[in-house]
Design a binder for these strands. Structure first.
Length: 345
DNA sequence: ATTCCACCGGAATAGCGGGATA
DNA sequence: TATCCCGCTATTCCGGTGGAAT
């Protein structure tokens, strides 16, 4: 019953957008100078998880490239590429200038290459830019006359708090595109589009789509995940339409799938920390450190553990309750996540 | 009030790994 | 092959903070 599974992928960009025309228009207006070989002012895309920020950025730049194919577009996910070196490297990859680049190339060589590649306009989409650790990289890029920035983040205030003054003042005046959560009907409409592309006709009913949209509470990524999971379950059972019990099973499944994937990305020591916290339910730092040291062969330093813990908090796997003395750690509970608490992405 | 203590996280540094170079 | 170079991770060192103990 699944005709085209690509439609369910995270990086799928639809050929038409639903419900985001204002945002697309605002962004393309800002990018318009690129059509005349001019650099565009920086633009920000703000909004919670699963509201289409990344999708709209890709879509809009795809449209732009249809009009002006010479423009180069580089997509950088700052969650993975969080150092200055890696950001620059990814940008160079997108414009095919990575020949002979390696870890031992001098520091400014990368930047120099990018600065020299002035033959074409370059658009740098920096996704999850609040995860970028060396924000000086933004300053570097902004200085280049042929690089236009599209910056994506969850929350405006948190992002600006993490920037240093130089960068902040330079970016203050740029365009901001704000994305709100989808309503249930809006999300159902989006899912309907995906379903007609991905599935055989009549594989899913309108009422089921509304159920999915409701369960996803405005998060398109979760909604699409549920739809995909339900379709796969139905397919495995050899039926030609999504059944209600396949749907019921898919709803919790899609929510935990993301978490399981993040857990797989942890290294062994981080995993031990997570297990200790999960078993204890809630635990004080000193007990946590001691239990960790008991379980593991060659324990890391407490300072390193603290680095691990902050990272896991960022991943939304655990949360820290309280500050300083008397702080405890616990795993983030999976249900009961209010809409406005989406800090991850 | 003063001292102590647990905890956090910034900054500097060491060591590792791996491609480049001679 | 030996050596250089540099990004990256873990470690060392430490100052700050605020509740607890005296």
């Amino acid at each position: 019953m699944i005709v085209d599974g690509r439609v369910f992928r995270e990086d799928f960009v639809p050929s038409e957008v639903v419900h985001r025309h204002d945002e697309v228009n605002l962004l393309s207006e800002t990018l318009e100078p690129l059509l005349y070989d001019q650099r565009a002012e920086p633009s920000f895309l703000f909004g919670p998880t699963g509201v289409g920020k990344t999708c709209i950025a890709r879509y809009t730049l795809g449209q732009l490239r249809e009009q002006e194919p010479d423009v180069r577009v580089a997509y950088v996910n700052c969650w993975q590429e969080y150092t200055r070196f890696r950001v620059l490297y990814t940008l160079l990859e997108a414009i095919d200038r990575t020949r002979d680049v390696h870890r031992s190339t001098p520091k400014d060589e990368l930047f120099g290459r990018l600065a020299d590649a002035t033959d074409r306009q370059i658009v740098a989409i920096l996704d999850e830019v609040d995860q970028l650790e060396e924000t000086a990289a933004l300053y570097d890029l902004h200085r280049l006359g042929h690089v236009s920035l599209v910056l994506i983040a969850n929350r405006e205030d948190e992002l600006f708090a993490s920037l240093d003054d130089r960068v902040r003042s330079r970016l203050r005046a740029s365009t901001r595109v704000r994305f709100d959560r989808y309503g249930t009907e809006e999300l159902a409409a989006i899912l309907e589009r995906r379903a007609t592309k991905a599935l055989e006709p009549d594989a899913v009913t309108d009422d089921q789509l509304l159920q999915i949209a409701d369960a996803a509470s405005g998060d398109a990524r979760v909604g699409i995940g549920i739809l995909r999971s339900a379709a796969r379950r139905a397919q495995r059972r050899g039926v030609d339409a999504i059944t209600d019990d396949a749907l019921a099973a898919a709803i919790p499944d899609a929510r935990t799938a993301i978490r399981r994937k993040t857990l797989e990305g942890l290294i062994e020591h981080q995993r031990v920390l997570y297990d200790v916290i999960a078993e204890a339910g809630e635990i004080e730092p000193s007990d946590l450190y001691r239990e960790y040291e008991r379980r593991v062969g060659a324990p890391k330093t407490e300072r390193t553990l603290r680095n691990y813990l902050t990272k896991m908090v960022h991943y939304d796997l655990i949360e820290a309750v309280g500050e300083r003395r008397g702080r405890t750690y616990r795993v983030v509970d999976e249900d009961a996540r209010p809409d406005d608490a989406a800090v991850d992405s």
